[in-house]
């Protein structure tokens, strides 16, 4: 995550690709978060394993989304936000002053709860991340857009309509477009904040297949309300409750033989 200085952007991205061959490590130490006086995260330690899917589960308001947004520092713009503790990615503390948050976010993509395509064409949506980096090479952008759309399993559906407005796509297609948009800048980590909560079951299944496929190349952290979804797609699961990490371990273990009573109560549907 060091702000390295590169001669030009295409090269910049190549360095990026090299980075990806070495899967990233994520360590969180004693992290606390406040919104004004309200303590949203009460001191969490966790280490995320590379090239896996980790699911964050827990009842609404447990802090799982806030926690997820720490990794790409999306909370920075919220009024009254304060944070303590360390988050290290590849051994570097991402909250250090010299870390350039724009570079960090290029490295760590994010997919949001509701599909949020820009009111632009399909092509422009996917190319956006490249263009804001100042890349002008049309051939390069073209190739990247195609590659990202293929990775997101959307290419076949839209390849003849790249100029069409993204808002004309269905909800499921829009969300896959948002994933493609994230993939186009070739991040190494992808954060997903309840990416299927606004979608129908068929679109959800498609996205879940996609997540399984992406895990080969990317480290994925997904916040989900849907426990079946967590058990279907994740390798590891972390259960949050009122700002605390209650239990973290292999998904299979959490869902079949949790150690904590609270976890068991939640996954068996006794509260939530």
């Amino acid at each position: 995550m060091e702000p390295t200085i590169h001669k030009n952007n295409t090269q910049d991205l190549k360095v990026n690709e090299v980075l990806q061959k070495k899967p990233p490590t994520i360590e969180v130490k004693e992290v606390k978060v406040w919104y004004d006086d309200f303590m949203a995260i009460k001191g969490i330690d966790i280490a995320i394993k590379p090239n896996t899917v980790t699911a964050f589960i827990g009842p609404s308001g447990c802090g799982k989304s806030t926690f997820l947004r720490l990794f790409n520092r999306m909370n920075d713009y919220i009024d009254g936000y304060k944070m303590e503790g360390k988050i290290k990615i590849n051994g570097k503390n991402i909250n250090k002053k010299k870390v350039i948050v724009e570079v960090l976010r290029k490295e760590i993509g994010m997919v949001f709860q509701k599909p949020n395509p820009f009111p632009k064409s399909i092509f422009e949506n996917v190319a956006y991340g490249l263009k804001i980096q100042g890349i002008k090479d049309k051939n390069f952008i073209q190739k990247r857009v195609e590659k990202a759309l293929k990775q997101a399993d959307l290419w076949e559906e839209v390849k003849d309509n790249l100029k069409k407005s993204a808002l004309a796509l269905s909800g499921g297609q829009q969300q896959r477009l948002c994933i493609a948009r994230t993939l186009a800048v070739e991040p190494s980590i992808i954060l997903m904040d309840e990416p299927t909560s606004a979608l129908d079951p068929i679109s959800t299944a498609k996205i879940e297949d996609l997540i399984r496929e992406l895990k080969k190349k990317y480290t994925i952290i997904i916040v989900t309300h849907n426990m079946q979804q967590a058990s279907r797609i994740s390798d590891y699961t972390a259960f949050f409750y009122i700002g605390d990490l209650i239990e973290y371990g292999k998904t299979k273990k959490i869902f079949t033989n949790p150690e904590k009573k609270q976890t068991e109560n939640y996954i068996t549907g006794r509260f939530g």
Binding site: M74, K106, N116, Y128, I132, Q133, R181, T182
Partner: peptide, 20 residues
């Protein structure tokens, strides 16, 4: 949500303001 999508890809506030 549109702003967050843009920030999430590494855009600055200025880029987000003028492009989104």
């Amino acid at each position: 949500s549109l702003r967050e999508a843009s920030y999430g890809m590494g855009a600055t506030k200025l880029q987000t303001a003028f492009k989104v």
